[in-house]
Design a protein around this nucleic acid. Sequence first.
DNA 1: CTCTTTTTTTGACTTAAGTCAAGGATATGT
DNA 2: ACATATCCTTGACTTAAGTCAAAAAAAGAG
Lengths: 233, 233
Amino acid sequence: MTNPKNDNVLLMSKMPIFHNLSEHALKMLERILIRKTFAKSENIFSEGDESAGFYILIKGRVKVFKLSMEGKEQILHIMEAKELLGAVSAFAGNPYPAHADAIEKTEAFFFPRNEFVSLVKREPSVVMNIMANLSMRLQHFTNMIENLSLKEVPGRLGAYLLYLCKRTGCGDTVEMDISKGQLASFLGTSPETLSRIFKKMSEKNILEIKGRSVRILRRKDLKDIVDGEKVKL
Amino acid sequence: MTNPKNDNVLLMSKMPIFHNLSEHALKMLERILIRKTFAKSENIFSEGDESAGFYILIKGRVKVFKLSMEGKEQILHIMEAKELLGAVSAFAGNPYPAHADAIEKTEAFFFPRNEFVSLVKREPSVVMNIMANLSMRLQHFTNMIENLSLKEVPGRLGAYLLYLCKRTGCGDTVEMDISKGQLASFLGTSPETLSRIFKKMSEKNILEIKGRSVRILRRKDLKDIVDGEKVKL
DNA sequence: CTCTTTTTTTGACTTAAGTCAAGGATATGT
DNA sequence: ACATATCCTTGACTTAAGTCAAAAAAAGAG
């Protein structure tokens, strides 16, 4: 039978953000953390909310997104287990810059802002880990801006599929982990447009789509589309 | 007559990134820095280059940008004096994620990678300053993505003008600090489109444009355009 | 398994914005 | 002040992608 306290410490020790933390520091953290659960599609925070603290996901997934006045959404990030949510705001003391909704039943550790700030000050190694995290996100956003502004939708879709393929280390079949509607929002387009592009790519035998699983048949052509070579769709 | 060494230390002490550094640390840094000068439109580094170190600008300006295969550019950032250039790459050991060109005669301190990394490890306060810097950039990119994907070009232009206006604390006349072509690239559009929108906004008496100086005549209408209210242009 | 709800697809249409090309304006250097 | 190069504007045209509406398919609830 597992002790819930040790459980939390064990979980934390596996989080990249808490790597190299002493047992003592982890136990201190264990005392201030609050374990929270969110239902599917439950809102975690909204843009403009004052930051009360930050989250580390234990399981489930969260979408971080912006909303236009007309209700169109742009997904910035799909957060998974072990990822940090709201840390920049908690650290800088700014309101949250985007919305966050759970897209599955999600469990998370919540760390209140003050405790987090004082932890950061006492534990330099945490800062290093956070820096690494922020750097990765900057890189991610840099690519996102490049894609949104310099590529058209087929190119963005191709880049996403090739990225998924690389990340999951599969052969040529990728399992999309979000709905096509959500993918459209992530790629900065509409479900209709995405659907049409999937269709055209299937017709040209570049892809084969069965529900959420996509098989890449002509990787070369897909790469050309990503690189802006005008492959007729 | 000023001593160039003291000059460097004095300059550094005024850089936000080196705030709270001891006199000793600054003098150590002073020994490893290399002062570099770049001519207008000179390339500082290119996307994919191995990071040799990072820069802090003393004077001048640098554009950080991505290029599409067809040569279209998207400006990510216009860096000014006291800003950090290439620090994320230097710290994380990644190649530079974008290109950087001086857009004016620019002077900068260059800090070689190794010395920087060891400095960061010895001086926790530097890390804090860098974190603050990265946080601001993340926020900036978040807004950029929102604008690119959720607003159309008139909205992006409006947001930029209102931002400039706020930042310079002026009444209603803003001095644009970059050419219209570069502004187009920053807003993720073409010079032609930008020119047409400026014209339409002038015709509607929302703006008055004289070269690079823009007077905001109908702030309310401009805000409505930014917020996606369909103001007929 | 059936009914309901949500997601996805398709068609017809509209529109914002890109492209190409040429003329005008402005800046830069000698 | 001149010439040269760069930047900006304008017109005519093309096109990618958005919108609206409705049908088809898939997922979820009872």
